[in-house]
Design a protein around this nucleic acid. Structure first.
Lengths: 151, 151
DNA sequence: GCGAATAATTGAAGCTGTCAAGCTTTGACC
DNA sequence: GGTCAAAGCTTGACAGCTTCAATTATTCGC
């Protein structure tokens, strides 16, 4: 009598990736609340903060570029920009092509953007509490992930 | 002459964690669009899917428990439950304490929940493309992160 | 110059979210 | 047992996000 064992390498490979992703998903989900609370300090919603973060102080972006990066409709950006502009964080500038309007940070916007970026970059306690070796390993693997994401 | 080198261990430790978190943050941000697109297939918004996922077929949850897990106001859950119930995915059940209403999955709800969970668990290409060793290392480190998160 | 394409805006509609006010029910206390 | 505060949920008002269809202004090809 023969015992034939089929080793499903592909499935097994997916299994590990799947569990890693589940953990990663939970982690970022758990940190949503923390981020949103931090953004409340500067009275920004997540989409507003996201848009603000995209704006390099030295490099304004057109409305449509922002829409593309935010993966949303262009008409949506109009409203977000309206609210940021009303608060004096951003201003619309006419470009060469007078159809396009570029969004540029005001000095106040540069300031608030700093807070936004700091909020987004601050790692959760649990990550900071990892051993140095784990932190490095994690960082290196994630660099490879970005590598594999193309570009 | 002495050369005194101050090694800022704490700062350095934070630096690695910070970069790891930035990469992780980008990764989950990049996957938001993919998830939302997948949820569109079953015509669910993210909060609706999130709520549905919480509901174990064998274990209904009260509205306030859901609000707590969703980190939002209880009144918000009323609306989300309304829409899920209108689609026949969920039903309100009166409990012992007649103030509390438990949300329970319908058979159709169980079905749709499967799709939701599958969508959330499917790892991005870049993670699946990691080497087996990297996948395992990533998974193990993330398990330790969860450990450190307390429970 | 004419017409198609592009960039942004507007208006309508639905969802998420908060807060304040209200309802019913429960539980504690006298 | 009666009263009153608290708990659980809902409602209404309001603001933001989001999409789609329609509109306006501008540019580009021909």
């Amino acid at each position: 009598m023969y015992h034939i064992t089929v080793v499903p390498t592909v499935t097994r490979s997916t299994e590990t990736a799947r569990e890693a992703w589940e953990l990663l998903f939970e982690l970022s989900l758990a940190n949503r609340a923390r981020l949103i609370a931090s953004l409340e300090e500067v009275d920004l919603t997540f989409p507003q903060a996201h848009a603000l973060r995209l704006l390099d102080p030295d490099r304004p972006l057109s409305m449509s570029e922002i829409a593309e990066r935010l993966v949303c409709d262009a008409s949506n950006v109009t409203g977000i920009a309206d609210r940021l502009e009303a608060r004096g964080l951003v201003e619309r500038r006419a470009g060469d092509d007078r159809r396009v309007k570029a969004l540029a940070l005001t000095p106040k916007g540069v300031e608030v953007r700093r807070h936004v970026i700091e909020s987004m970059r601050r790692p959760p306690e649990a990550i900071a509490a990892l051993s140095q070796a784990d932190q490095r390993a994690l960082r290196d693997i994630l660099r490879r992930v970005v590598e594999l994401s193309g570009r």
